[in-house]
Structures are given as structure tokens and as C-alpha cells.
Nucleic acid binder design. Structure first.
Lengths: 149, 149
DNA sequence: GTTGTTGCAAAAGGTTTGCATGTAT
DNA sequence: ATACATGCAAACCTTTTGCAACAAC
């Protein structure tokens, strides 16, 4: 059984995008990409910046932002806006659309998927002659662990 | 048939909140409240500020922000964050929880409600032993009118 | 050699806060 | 008379941008 390698797939996606847009490869961007993909969390730009800084001490915040925008354009990452004025980013590879349960107390994010809700959303939008391009469902509350505290 | 008066209800809610927290009434805040409630749109703070300015030319932006925070604390209004770094506010009175269809082209917001989706969200959260406190469903796409353009 | 990438600093954009003054109780 | 509300300006925080130096092709 061959283990699927997310990072390689991300690199391929990015390489194709770079070629298509006449952009150049860069060491820094590759490291930012690896750091984002290997982290299983939904990082803020600042968290990602701090992680990357361990490897590239003099990296600039702007470089991280520019890389993140490029990853979103490639389809490698997704920008999430759970709360005002602080974006988080999630790798997008080979995951179906999913929703988020967000714990208000520990800030943990649980990814969930419900086919029936997805289907009903389509029915709902059709009722309004609305063409759905994307959607997000966020449920805020108290996770299992925080309930005991 | 007596028409339900949203503004009066909002005023009552606010009055109770002010008393409970030893706050004072204010002319400006009342005008901001009326302007918000009477507008049926999802205003940004700036849009609200500009509307209020017609009545109180020298009103400050800070006053609008302070009022909006208070309205949210009262349960009179709800802060929406459809896109990064620009909040919109909707009056909350006597409306059931609802979701939003947001047109990416004309920025129109359609309020919708689907009981079945609401119910399935409860089932979903129970599956994860998650206690839901609030949730939001936002569907982005192309509204009926924009499809013909 | 040309052009994209980077770090830095400055700017931008939305929101909040400090402070002296005004206003409600 | 006390303490909250206000307008103004400055501060704040996240994100973007201009620019000269650097790196990839």
C-alpha cells in the first residue's frame, strides 16, 4: 500500500501554477509550503510565520502572506475567517468539502462532513434560483473535552 | 391587527440592559438604534455612520462602533463577518435563526431558513459530543438577477 | 540579463482606546 | 455632583505595498 503524499501533490499543483503564470520557484516558499502542509492545524499567518522562522530566522511576514495568497490561488490552501480580523489557513488537498465545529473555549477546530446537509443546501439554493459557488457552515460551541472542565 | 413595532422592542431591550449595567441613555445612541432598525439591510459600520450623519452631522465613528457593540451585547443586533475585515450588522429582533445567501457579484444578501438543515446540524453536533451555542451557514454564489447579466 | 522574490519599512483599512469635554441622572 | 457618553486624534492589529537588493532562469 502506497501512502499518499500530500506534500508532493501540493508541490505538483504549485509547480504547474508557477509555470502557467511565468513565476519562479523559491526556496523560502517551498519551506513555507512544507510547514503549512505538515501542520495538521488551521494556522494563522502569524503561527505559520513563527514556525517558518525556526528554519529561516530572517524571513519576513510579507513573504508568508504572499506565499499564502499564492497557495490559495493554486487551490492548495483555503483561507478561513472564523472570527473577525484574523484569518486561518487550511491545506485543501484531497479533502472533501467539510464544515467546522469550533470550540469557543479552547479554539479547537473539528472538521466534519454531512452529505445530507450538503444536499439540502443545493435544494435550498435552487429554491431561490441562486447558483452556489461555495459555502461554509460553522458551528460554534463547547467541545467534548471542554465540557468536563 | 396591531403591527408589531421592532423599534419599540429594541428600545425596551436596550433600556433593560442600560438599567442592569448602570448606564445612561443618550440621544445619539437612540438615533443610531432607530437608523439601524429601520434599515432593512445588513449595514456596515460605515454605512450606518453615513446614515446617522445625515441627522447628526458631527457624530464620530467611535460613537457608532460603541453603540453597535452595545446593541450586540443587548441582543438587539448581530455582527456578521461575511468577508475578512469588514463587519456588517443585522437587527436580531423576532427573527428566527436564518442563513445567508451572498451574491459575489452584487453583494446582495438573501436571508433564508431551512428547518431540516437546522435539525441535521443538531444531529451532527451530537455525534461529536459537541454542545452547539451558535452556528452560521453562508452560501456564496450568483443571485438570480446577476445570472442574466 | 531579465524578471520574479525577499526583507524591511511604511501604508492601508477597519476597529478600539485615551482623554478632555459634554450630558444625563 | 457623579459618572457615563461623545468627538477627536492617536493607537492598534492584521494585511498589503513600494522599493532596493537578491536569486532563479
Amino acid at each position: 500500500m502506497i501512502e499518499f503524499n500530500k506534500l508532493d501533490k501540493a508541490k505538483d499543483l504549485m509547480a504547474a501554477y508557477l509555470v502557467k503564470n511565468n513565476l519562479k520557484t523559491s526556496q523560502n516558499r517551498n519551506i513555507i509550503l512544507r510547514t503549512l502542509i505538515n501542520s495538521q492545524e488551521h494556522l494563522t499567518s502569524e503561527e505559520l510565520y513563527n514556525l517558518v522562522k525556526e528554519e529561516i530566522p530572517n524571513i519576513g511576514m510579507a513573504t508568508v502572506y504572499r506565499a499564502l495568497r499564492l497557495f490559495c490561488d493554486c487551490g492548495i490552501a483555503n483561507e478561513l475567517n472564523f472570527q473577525k480580523s484574523k484569518s486561518r489557513y487550511e491545506p485543501l488537498l484531497d479533502i472533501k468539502h467539510h464544515d467546522h465545529l469550533i470550540c469557543k473555549y479552547c479554539s479547537k477546530v473539528i472538521e466534519v462532513c454531512d452529505e445530507e446537509i450538503e444536499r439540502l443546501q443545493e435544494v435550498l439554493t435552487e429554491k431561490y434560483d441562486f447558483i452556489m459557488e461555495s459555502h461554509k457552515l460553522e458551528i460554534y460551541g463547547l467541545c467534548k473535552e471542554c465540557q468536563t472542565n
